[in-house]
Design a protein around this nucleic acid. Sequence first.
DNA 1: CTGTTAGCGCGTTCAC
DNA 2: GTGAACGCGCTAACAG
Lengths: 339, 339
Amino acid sequence: MDIRTFSSLIGVSTATVSRAFSGRGVIGAQTREHVLNEARRLNFSPNVLARRLSMQSSGVLGLYYSFGDEAIFDYYNMELAQEVAKAASTAGFGLHLELAPRRIPAPNDPATQLATLAAGKGLDGIVLVSDGRESARTLLSEVGGTPAVVITGESLAGLPFQAQVVIDFAPGIRAAIDHLVAVGHRRIGYIRGLGDGAKAAALRSALAVHGLVLDEQATRSGPKTFSDGQRAFNELRAAGVTAALCATDILALGAIHAANAAGVSIPRDFSIVGIDDLAFAAHTAPTLSSIGVPRDALARTAIDALVSTLKKTDGEAAPATHSVSTYFIPRESSGPLSA
Amino acid sequence: MDIRTFSSLIGVSTATVSRAFSGRGVIGAQTREHVLNEARRLNFSPNVLARRLSMQSSGVLGLYYSFGDEAIFDYYNMELAQEVAKAASTAGFGLHLELAPRRIPAPNDPATQLATLAAGKGLDGIVLVSDGRESARTLLSEVGGTPAVVITGESLAGLPFQAQVVIDFAPGIRAAIDHLVAVGHRRIGYIRGLGDGAKAAALRSALAVHGLVLDEQATRSGPKTFSDGQRAFNELRAAGVTAALCATDILALGAIHAANAAGVSIPRDFSIVGIDDLAFAAHTAPTLSSIGVPRDALARTAIDALVSTLKKTDGEAAPATHSVSTYFIPRESSGPLSA
DNA sequence: CTGTTAGCGCGTTCAC
DNA sequence: GTGAACGCGCTAACAG
């Protein structure tokens, strides 16, 4: 049943039916009610595809990750995706999630799904979660003119996005280090993640406040899996470190696991602090001290920025920069060394 | 730039351009190359929205969860969603994920996003993850005529879907119980989840094999969060049980946490087995014995079933039932009681 | 193998 | 406040 047959069936014009469903334009309240009721009765619903073509808008936002070729979609990104979906839904948009590994852009051949969709106006806007300037640049170039906002750990100023939401790790890391130092740690290590330049920098400054430095010996690359965290922990431990900040909770959980396996008691013999405050962090054994970011606010900020861009009549406004702060959540995995 | 101006610009017809991009129809190899090259040069890409309207197909599959009013999107469903997205992508489809809590179907007013999309042909097909017959029935009624396959723990035969993929928990649970009994457990408890009828039934039969029963005292309702698992563990422990199967790994992690807090050593004093084999299961302390399901195969089966339905020319075939089996993965959290 | 043409179903100016 | 007609950009028959 299309709008034409339906409208003639109930004796009004297609325009009236359209107005009744869209809420746009002017229409008598009773007319509207009538149309809607008849629609239910005759089981008519407007064709989404036709509406989209006519409106030149898909009502769908895309969520993408810039993480290289492999689909690194870990717990953190899943939890973030959830919040983004919520925010998009609240704003009246659907969400297209690209979870599958991006195909290697075969020379000359079917570009990535993202590129096809973006270039073909299949997406109204894009939220891009970046793990570094270069990968972000690449992905942004793929999306061409589609409005994009990027969620990032470090300012990406200069890249072609409509807005960026920068996660400010400094406050959380600062608080974590203050805490570790306060309970007596002096040799504090770091397990690195992917695209964590801002985290490392924040760590250095936080340490500097206490006259401490982060040397090479105290730094190990995760970079991402549980197992990476395990290995890195053992290396750090061997290096004489007594506490470690981990770039992600995943790495931290791996580190805790390695500690347990090695008979190292956390936090009596070693303190561990993660970053992300994933849902499971409060339920590991011991529970994981972590640096959290308000993912709901982060997602809302990104979506709001994107949607407001969409509303502006092509107003080539300068890219906006928003910032969300992090905070330290002390749990059992960090504390004083046992004397 | 639309296909018409582009085609005249390069001196071919719109049909030729369409053929070059879609791969459908017949077209000379060199013509095709030429068109594609010119498209790159002139920066033309076909409009996705117009293509969809014309094809009467969105190229998008929907993934939905039947979990009541609340958005219960836990780690299990996230990991599953990832596999479904991969499978969909492989099959050439995009995925529309509904992560946000479903709005209460306001009487008479904008139905759920799902209903609107489905009724308006905005989705080619739907994968529905069910947690029970009633909720599945409700959701299926919302999607009307859109082809649907459901992923479920128990057969939903009789409901209006194109195919169902039933997760068979029996083999995994059977193996887990055999294992627990073999190492000496006799009082085995169960921490229930949501919509876990099939799991409970499988547990009963597995116990029956050994002449054991699952009594009320040994059964506690989670039903879902880490904290639920903690509470339930303490109750079971008080009831004199020495081992427990948990309906999900989340519950199991909560139980382990409670055990650690209570100074109960796992598995020396108590054995715990989860279900789902989430990514973190191998990294808890102690590592979590669990019953796993091959999520990749599960997702592939569901998508394949859905896609093959779509291809059939409306062939009202009888709903197919597929089944994927589970298996037991013993880890540290289960073993003999210390003498 | 390529061009022509008629839809796909809805939004939205305009007149009334 | 409501109806008629054109346009959104592409695909698929059909003709050549």
